[in-house]
């Protein structure tokens, strides 16, 4: 059919056909190039994750073989530059966990109630104002949190410390740079994440569930705590897990307010976290000390990976519930 028409219309048809073919092939070329670019970009992040993982494992494991996994993880003596060095990071790991846990315990309830306020209670204008403040909080660089913590929070803590331990001989005064300060700063830092994700989850609870609760004679507070929050649980869990990740990975603010000695993590002790160990020692460490610091980094890395895995699990759980 096309062949016949081509003959009848001669060159002009053939040229049009050629042009159409050219246009089509150009469009196809654009498609192919675009696809390649997308694929390459996507591959970049995969490549980054894979190479970082590889790098951490390759550099973090030699020390494990030289010192021994048990001596690193479960020994509490950290004396990397002593004549007979000891590389136990037990207290450091414990400090990271304790600091994160305290930050979550202090920050999550406040953040959750803020989210409830924004989503359920506040009039629109007020909610917009508070919401904007929360977003700004998320954008403040962590070093600023650290600075303010150092200048404002630490002196307050010091006064508190002096009062509490006035009659405790042998207490090592920290000048307020201690675990509790770090936990408070972290609590504030994780709040924006927890607030905004919880708020979204609370807003996503269907209105008819609230209506049903009111129709049964429940009050607003009862409805919020017994229906809305349970219904928003998967989203709130996601918020908390992301908050944990942020707290665990924070280095700068913590290093400014936590004192920095390796100690049993108690509220009024100066402590060193996994992150702050890297920040404060990486600059001068050499030899085995440097290798152990890579192991410290690897431990932190594994923690963060575990948190992401649990997040994935929560999200999958939610998908299954929706079905």
């Amino acid at each position: 059919m096309q062949y016949i028409s081509a003959e009848r219309y001669g060159n002009s048809y053939r040229n049009a056909e050629k042009k159409r073919y050219r246009d089509r092939s150009r469009a196809e070329l654009v498609e192919t190039v675009a696809e390649t670019v997308f694929t390459f970009c996507a591959f970049c992040s995969v490549l980054a994750v894979a190479s970082i993982t590889l790098y951490m494992v390759v550099n973090g494991t030699p020390a494990v073989f030289r010192v021994g996994l048990k001596d690193i993880l479960f020994s509490s003596t950290w004396k990397p530059v002593a004549k007979e060095p000891s590389f136990g990071i037990f207290y450091v790991v414990l400090s990271s966990i304790a600091g994160t846990a305290m930050a979550v315990i202090l920050g999550v309830p406040v953040a959750l109630l803020t989210a409830v306020f924004l989503a359920e209670v506040a009039p629109k204008k007020l909610a917009a104002t508070v919401g904007a403040a929360v977003e700004l909080l998320a954008g403040i660089p962590s070093v600023i949190y650290g600075m303010i913590g150092m200048m404002v929070l630490n002196p307050v803590m010091y006064r508190l410390e002096q009062r509490i331990f006035a009659r405790t001989p042998g207490h090592q005064f920290t000048g307020g740079a201690n675990l509790l300060s770090a936990a408070l700063v972290l609590a504030v830092m994780i709040m924006p994440t927890v607030i905004s994700i919880s708020e979204t989850a609370i807003r996503a609870v269907p209105a008819h569930l609230r209506a049903s609760s009111y129709a049964l004679g429940a009050s607003r507070v009862q409805t919020i705590f017994r229906v809305v929050l349970p219904a928003a649980k998967p989203g709130i869990a996601t918020a908390v897990v992301l908050g944990v990740g942020r707290a665990l990975g924070e280095a700068m603010a913590v290093s400014l307010v936590s004192g920095g000695s390796v100690n049993v993590p108690l509220p009024f002790r100066s402590v060193r976290f996994l992150t702050t160990a890297l920040v404060s020692e990486m600059g001068y460490a050499g030899g085995l000390h440097r290798q152990v610091l890579f192991t410290v980094g690897l431990v932190l890395f594994v923690f963060i990976m575990l948190i992401n895995l649990s997040l994935n699990r929560i999200l999958k759980e939610r998908e299954r519930q929706d079905d």
Binding site: P206, H208, L209, S212, S213, L216, A218, P230
Partner: peptide, 27 residues
């Protein structure tokens, strides 16, 4: 409490069957 209501969309709370029914008495 005296004047109960059933809605157009069946909308049980995302909790167990038991807790759904016990919700009203509990509040």
């Amino acid at each position: 409490r005296k004047v109960g209501m059933v809605f157009q969309e069946p909308n049980p709370f995302p909790m167990s069957i038991y807790d759904n029914v016990a919700y009203g008495p509990r509040v």
